[in-house]
Amino acid sequence: MSSSVEAITVLSSDGDEFKITVSAAKLSKPLNWMLEDVCFSDDCDEVPTIEVNSKTLVKVIEYCEKHAPRANSGASDSDAEELKKWDIEFMKMDVKDILFHILMAANYLHMEGLYDLACQTAADLMKGMTVSQIRKIFHIKNDFSSEEQEQLRRQHPGCSFD
């Protein structure tokens, strides 16, 4: 492949092929390394695999393509504002399913922006919620014994378990 490639093909962990543009791949260090490998090795037929499932990879690539122009060239305040709104829409997804896959993928792909965005979104779901509401949203099982609960209640008198 020549160095003038505009997009690279990658495989998801499910074995599906995806195309990602060079500028978008630059948002992730590991993707960028793959890109350099592909660009500098001639007749390399091997398509690199990314350990992220297809459903998540679609979203990750969507994020990269959206953020690439700004990351590569900088942008005005109004663009930043627009991008913020886009981020909020982008994160409107099922908590149990994609959010944590996105989080893990962003972590694995060293994508700071997406990582922070996913963590912020998870945190926003907890804000202002009672303990039992948070348990419900994230399906967290209360595994404290009654003694432990009593002890915690003493330690955090301002907080309620409900």
Partner: peptide
């Protein structure tokens, strides 16, 4: 971005069961 396998959507892994505590 999906460029291959017309039936690939069927192969999405559903490794998260609805009620699983993923966050923990």
């Amino acid at each position: 971005n999906l460029v291959l396998s017309p039936d690939s959507s069927k192969r999405y892994r559903h490794d998260v069961i609805d009620k699983k505590d993923v966050i923990s």
